[in-house]
């Protein structure tokens, strides 16, 4: 019964913006950037957001940027596409999520940090930027957005199980009948995301079961953010680390520690562009 109610909540989520999906699809088939820019320009909201960022004091430009085609010169293609994904995703995450003990803005910070961490991971592995991976990392905990109020209701029982050594996600499943990764996978499917993104969201805590390497990478990005405590709430430290997956990608403990420094640095730089408020006490 509860599960049906949760699924009906998923139906009520506003659909993921079409432009962002279209951009993702075009990047996937390596469409020329000019075409992608034209698609973005058709959407006033996204264009406005991109121009706002371009004209922010952060870039300190002397003249005003007024088109997406111009903006790309300053932002670079990859960063511009990233802004589209971030703009599309932000509204789902921003609120407080009391089931996970997250104040307003915290889950969004976790999402952004995780996306940044996935970029760093690609660099460390000597691979190029992958917008699908960036998107999967950004959205990996989307299930929490819907599940949070149910977690809040069952929190006492969930935490009892967690204290007995159970991963948080398994406790969610036992107490509520649903966990945030499974639910996140359903949401991504409903939004018509590509298979590798759905798979990565679904298995971000159990990457061994995934069909592609995306889940393993999102898993590692998530571990890095949780280690730094960014949006770690009451649950992230009670999840498992899959060290096989870490070793499988050839990462050592030293790699991870070096990446924590890089992550904190780059995350802060990104934050100065996308304002978020501090917490307000206990």
């Amino acid at each position: 019964m509860k599960v049906e109610e949760i699924l009906s909540k998923v139906q009520q989520l506003p659909p993921f913006p079409q432009v962002a999906l279209k951009v993702l699809e075009m990047v996937g088939r390596e469409a020329p950037f000019k075409e992608i820019a034209r698609v973005i320009e058709l959407d006033e909201g996204f264009t406005a957001e991109i121009l706002k960022i371009c004209n922010s004091p952060f870039f300190g430009l002397s003249r005003k940027i007024s088109s997406v085609q111009e903006a790309v010169v300053y932002l670079g293609e990859k960063y511009l596409l990233e802004i589209v994904t971030r703009t599309a995703s932000k509204k789902y995450f921003e609120a407080a999520h009391r089931g996970y003990d997250l104040q307003r803005g915290e889950l969004w910070r976790h999402a952004v940090a995780c996306a940044v961490a996935s970029d760093l991971l690609q660099e460390r592995l000597g691979r190029g930027k992958d917008l699908a991976l960036f998107t999967a990392s950004l959205l990996h905990d989307i299930g929490k957005v819907v599940l949070s109020s149910y977690v809040a209701d069952g929190l006492k029982e969930i935490l009892e199980r967690v204290r007995a050594g159970k991963p948080f996600i398994e406790a969610e499943k036992e107490v509520i009948g649903m966990d945030h990764a499974t639910l996140g996978g359903m949401i991504a499917k409903r939004w018509n995301f590509p298979e590798e993104i759905i798979d990565a969201i679904l298995y971000h805590h159990n990457p061994k079961e995934a069909k592609t390497e995306y889940a393993a990478k999102v898993h590692i990005a998530d571990v890095l953010c949780s280690t730094l405590g960014i949006g770690a709430g009451n649950d992230e430290l009670s999840e498992k680390i899959d060290s096989e997956v870490l070793k499988g990608l050839g990462l050592s403990g030293k790699d991870l520690m070096e990446m924590l420094v890089e992550l904190q640095d780059r995350y802060e730089k990104t934050q100065s562009l996308f304002t978020t408020e501090q917490g307000d006490g206990f």
Binding site: T227, E239, I241, S243
Partner: peptide, 12 residues
Amino acid sequence: GEMLDSSGFFRI
């Protein structure tokens, strides 16, 4: 604090 890490790989 630490995540559940049975292998003790990270232990930061």
